[in-house]
Design a protein around this nucleic acid. Structure first.
Lengths: 185, 185, 185, 185
DNA sequence: ACTGGCGGGACTGCCCGTTAAT
DNA sequence: ATTAACGGGCAGTCCCGCCAGT
């Protein structure tokens, strides 16, 4: 009769996600073996698979959590702040962003999973860009959809840089990005 | 089929690289098993490992070949044309670009290998941007190095999009990129 | 079958060693494939490699176990009894003695492993011969070290014979050995 | 139209056997890969397999050659000289003696091959010991067969020592052996 | 709730011998 | 006679997930 609280369960799930995030980021999905997950998380195989049915599901949960966090950042604080925040972010998070892209490319099942889960999130991004176009802070000769695509490309490209360990002059970068999306003189 | 001409050997090596590129791009490095390589290349294990000592070396050879091709494109035809060409490029190539980034992040040995191999290539990119700044086609309030970084980020971000199968309005994208790197009015 | 007693684990380890000994002895180290180990031991790859990290380590464990047993025999019961016991021994044990010699010759890593492990055992043999020389049961015009070497050569040679399946008249052999090591008239 | 002499062919066969002996002795039968044979012999795969149908046959040829040489030594020069010569012999030869014993134990096909080939040789050894018994240089209370067995055991044991790289005081050893086989006072 | 023993599939790379070509 | 490309089998071992046991 174990009888544990919901809080305990939630804490365990978060413990698993946090440990797993570090491992996925450090080694990549395939080299993130279950043994490494056990070590980093501090729980046994059995416990981990008690909360999540498979390694893939653990990764999906992390991917969704982090993707949502990135969109919140953009919508709440704006592109400028979002880029700046990301550049200063932990390499763990960025590593997961990129690993997610890799899974999306190669794992159809995972692709479906994420499409379902993040449909609403995509819309929030487009809405945000649309609002910017209407209030004059963003150029309106390019569609909100294309602006969104551009922003995502930037972010992904940036993640690739930072996660790869390369130096980046964030101010120069922001100047270029701002000039790309601002209304033309 | 021994005592064969150098042409034959070169053709075989290219056959291996071309088949392997498709497999790496389609499945990712780890899921590109040797069985899949055999099937796609059309040669047996024995033949493949006769020409390359390991799967890793095959991948490295492809990565170097493709990286060089991407830089040639930029230097010879300009950023605009390069982006346009890439967007229309085969998903195989883009897949390898991204898979290369992933290996760079997780595989230190591979990282060293590539650093040695591509030292000169990096310089060519910076030189090209420097020339653009001096003849007034690129803005000069941002260093050539930072312009190069921005371009690489864009390219990588684009690769991520295209390889992921997403639609992209290339003209809108180019307008944004051009406005980012052009001299301010 | 987890959370199991220490007895269970010890029994499993012994089960692995006993099965493996038969296979190593029957086929030799290289031809003792993991499949054959699985069959003879009656456990899966997963189970076997759960207890020992590699085939080499399994062999080392057996070699150490058997080497110790042979020395105990000599020290406790004397050369005469030891030879007699060995000649009547299972071919498994003798096979391992010889396979150990082979590994020692070709596998430097294994050589180091065994040297560390059996340093003390070598001394026990020399001490035993030294005691024999002093109490007059062994000749004293040859050093204890050389007597020990002779005995080991005998034993190994005998192992080679018995393991090879050849008949041996053990009484004749013992007469020769006794006359070799006894004090001269 | 190659047109080579019989001398050329014989030289090639000897070249193969000599190189292969070194490799078999150094690495053991299984780890003596064909690549290593090629390197040490200085001929290509094709050439080697042109003269011998398989690796196994090369080894058998060496084993027979060396076994005959060892018996010649005993019969022509006596036990004392034979032991002394062996102890000073190249480790290559001794290595092959032991590797032969290993093959005999594990490879039935090889066992048959050698039995056929060396039937006459065994008889020569027994005859030699029988002669020694009759002319009084060897004890006659032990059969020639058992004396032969003892000698072979000693030789094999010695080979094991020397090939293993251990030091041996050959004079002490000879004293022990001589006292074992000489007529009792 | 949590542990860890265990099964069995799959991976890369090595190895021997054949054979087309010179 | 000699080369080396090539096929394909097989080796060790790692890895995920299941489930018996506490």
């Amino acid at each position: 009769v174990p009888k544990v609280t919901q809080e305990h369960r939630d804490a365990r799930r978060q413990q698993i996600l946090d440990g797993a995030r570090r491992v996925f980021s450090r080694y990549g999905y395939d080299s993130a073996t279950v043994v490494r997950l056990e070590e980093e998380i501090g729980l046994s195989r059995g416990a981990i698979f008690h909360y999540y049915p498979s390694k893939r599901e653990i990764f999906a949960a992390i991917a969704i959590e982090d993707s949502r966090r990135y969109i919140d950042l953009l919508v709440d604080r704006g592109l400028d702040e979002a880029v700046r925040a990301m550049a200063g972010e932990s390499r763990e998070w960025l590593g997961v962003v990129l690993e997610t892209q890799a899974r999306l490319r190669h794992d159809e099942e995972f692709q479906r999973r994420m499409a379902e889960e993040s449909a609403g999130d995509q819309q929030r991004v487009i809405d945000w860009f649309d609002a910017g176009r209407r209030d004059g802070t963003l150029r309106d000769d390019v569609s909100a959809l294309d602006l969104g695509r551009f922003a995502t490309m930037m972010i992904n490209g940036l993640a690739l840089r930072v996660a790869g360990g390369d130096e980046t002059d964030i101010d120069s970068l922001l100047r270029l990005v701002r000039d790309a999306v601002s209304p033309r003189a």
